[in-house]
């Protein structure tokens, strides 16, 4: 009899969120985002040189389903910092532009930080981790 409480995908997502200080659930990968909102969020994190883990939710629709069940947030991307949902592209953009994002990420805000959100991708930070295969 299947155990209705066993939910490996949800458990893997919860574990990923707790294991990574900064983790972005997105469509596509940081190198090849599959959606403009995900691309913009990646570009903001990269412009702050913030190390982050990234999970592509596209390979399996259940990833998005379970993620939204955990977070109560219906859209992608979703950025988590220290286990807490920070927001999607809109909130991250507002925080980026106000300087709050750097604070939340616990990184120094670059002196020359642009005041509007970047649109293009920047070089990939060294701390990037790919873990999507664990959720597949």
């Amino acid at each position: 009899m299947p155990d209705s409480e066993s939910n490996p995908i949800r458990d893997a997502i919860a574990e990923a969120i707790s294991e990574h200080d900064t983790i972005l659930f997105m469509k596509g990968t940081p190198e090849a985002p599959a959606c403009g909102f995900s691309a913009r969020t990646v570009a903001m994190l990269q412009s702050l040189q913030a190390p982050f883990a990234a999970v592509d939710i596209l390979p399996d629709p259940r990833i998005r389903q379970e993620l939204s069940a955990i977070s109560g947030w219906p859209t992608i991307p979703q950025l988590f910092v220290r286990g807490e949902l920070v927001g999607g592209c809109d909130i991250v953009s507002e925080m980026y532009e106000s300087g709050e994002l750097a604070d939340t990420l616990g990184i120094p805000e670059p002196e020359s930080a642009p005041t509007t959100a970047p649109v293009a991708s920047a070089p990939q930070p060294a701390g990037l981790t790919q873990i999507e295969n664990r959720l597949g």
Binding site: C89, E94, E97
Partner: peptide, 13 residues
Amino acid sequence: VGGGEQQRTAPAT
């Protein structure tokens, strides 16, 4: 932040 100016605009698209 920003002295309360209404300068924040939607991110460029």
